[in-house]
Design a protein around this nucleic acid. Sequence first.
DNA 1: TATGAATGAGCGTTCATTCAT
DNA 2: TATGAATGAACGCTCATTCAT
Lengths: 194, 194, 194, 194
Amino acid sequence: MRVKKQEKYDAILDAAFKVIEEKSFENTSISDIVKRANVAQGTFYLYFKSKSDLVPAIAEELLTKTYDMVIKHVNDSMSFNQKLETIIDVTFNITERYKEVIVLCYSGLAYGHSFEKWEEMYTPYYNWMEKQLKLAQERNEIAQETKIQFNVQVIINMIEQTAERTYLFNSTTGMDSVDHLKQELFNFIKRALI
Amino acid sequence: MRVKKQEKYDAILDAAFKVIEEKSFENTSISDIVKRANVAQGTFYLYFKSKSDLVPAIAEELLTKTYDMVIKHVNDSMSFNQKLETIIDVTFNITERYKEVIVLCYSGLAYGHSFEKWEEMYTPYYNWMEKQLKLAQERNEIAQETKIQFNVQVIINMIEQTAERTYLFNSTTGMDSVDHLKQELFNFIKRALI
Amino acid sequence: MRVKKQEKYDAILDAAFKVIEEKSFENTSISDIVKRANVAQGTFYLYFKSKSDLVPAIAEELLTKTYDMVIKHVNDSMSFNQKLETIIDVTFNITERYKEVIVLCYSGLAYGHSFEKWEEMYTPYYNWMEKQLKLAQERNEIAQETKIQFNVQVIINMIEQTAERTYLFNSTTGMDSVDHLKQELFNFIKRALI
Amino acid sequence: MRVKKQEKYDAILDAAFKVIEEKSFENTSISDIVKRANVAQGTFYLYFKSKSDLVPAIAEELLTKTYDMVIKHVNDSMSFNQKLETIIDVTFNITERYKEVIVLCYSGLAYGHSFEKWEEMYTPYYNWMEKQLKLAQERNEIAQETKIQFNVQVIINMIEQTAERTYLFNSTTGMDSVDHLKQELFNFIKRALI
DNA sequence: TATGAATGAGCGTTCATTCAT
DNA sequence: TATGAATGAACGCTCATTCAT
């Protein structure tokens, strides 16, 4: 029973992800989602109170995907530089792939003000990052006096935002390539941490 | 004739700003806007081709407000540090005041994909910032080898995005105060530039 | 289930017939139709893709009504002359009653160009008429050399069109009475067939 | 003065014709017409009380075009057969060219019930046709007992309607070509008149 | 739990018409 | 006479949500 319940829930969430990826949020209706999920219109409302109730769930899913992929690609034997590079790579990849879902998270903001939970969702990711920074300090890879707690947020945000600007706003002004941009971003953060 | 035309246009744009501030873009109907602007429903369509046609107009208005306020508060006699602090202040103020309009710019993205002009609109601001960084280099306030062109964008984006995360996502996690956050942001950028 | 579904569909189609009879197609709104049918606005779109989707459905209904009434009033024991007279009568009656719906079929043409099916709908009627003409030939009631296939269409069209001109255009010029007109029409066709 | 007034009137009527030809009636707005006519929106209402006021004017124009072309191509030295053929040709040509305008005349019917004048407009054409039939009787080209007054209307109507069915309804069922159809139509009328 | 037909408020948009200039 | 900006009612249509089964 429990499993079955999860099944439908997951089917709906998955479908929502896929449809939004394809059609953008504005063009996605509950009807689209349930059709894709192969459940009835009413079933949606057994698992979500309303359409805007989807947004935090999707945001959480997105964050989980990101966090999972980051920890999958990073391991302790890497240098901090390597780790940073990997995080940048993963973030850019996810951002490119889930453009429309990210936009949904922004407009979803407006659409029901359901984002008090946002930072709460980030917490595991922040904590993991904090650990990495502390480790880097211990290994003398970054400056000792770095205020880790603040930097954790700023660094993650900065990477995400740069990726978003790159893929959402399609900006190409004065930048040869995305690789170059990633390199500069890497340097910028490095300089701020040494 | 010209004046009258501008009058209605401005009235509609102003009203749109205000209503969107209150209700967000998605929840704002043309009907809301024209009621606030005291013009007829049809009048809207004399000045804007469609609802999504509002987005670039509003984005431009917002950017203009920001740029105007920045150059109003910054003068050449200031040190680079003072300038940076001022830019951070102004950006945080504007972001707080125009939260919803900023979200519109994000979701507006999805809503008509009208953002090729985005970077174009930023150009004057970027150019101004470039001048400030060059001046700072000449005055030996920042490192000589700083790659100005890239940094211009990254710095402005970073300030904006931090402000957005602060006010849009309502995050209070682990940060005593907005002032503290602004201070850390200032330090982060400083370190990256020296 | 099946029955209920048909119920709503029929209610809408019936209501459409009635409202269009009263107000013409162009002046009939979906809102008028659903009010008359006692269903919700959205229900209309469960059964018809759009307003213009009504047109073929209504045309078919009209044709069915005509065909049904013709075969109901005609039987094999009648002479061809009697049959012809009956067809003229029925056609005039239906045309008078469903004036506006017929106009819809004309303007509906423009309104979505959905009339490829028109001739297809006529096929059963044409086939029936062909059988009658062949029978009349066998019985020596009309000329042997008559090219039946062409005449089938021309005769039916001619009767319909004369009826339409009579009732749609409200012409009274120089004609004592509709009965007289019908008589002349009968003679005209007879002469063409002998 | 008089001339100028006519100028604008004609410009509007001409424009209406052209726009309707291109876009069909449903898609034609006053705005389209005045743009094409190079006059202001308000000017339309100096010459026509309302949109539906256009319909009789356009119908008259169409009828005039038809009548003019018929008498231009027919001359007294022709046999009745030649005349009939010519009338069929002209009618088919005009119908093909002015499809959409003809549909307007039908739906215009519904749209303001302005067609009491219809038969009145036809009068000159009917009278001319009556003269031709009488002449044919005198010349022994058609039967003496033919009731001319009725036949005048029936023949003209029949030709027009067959043309309309051909071009408006795009019917191709069982007919090799339009030429063949015209031939059969010719024969049908001939047989009815002899 | 699951369904999907039914709902109806509300949307963006159009356009015939008016009227101050 | 001529203009064209302004009007606002009305339209076709969508879609989040409900509810009887």
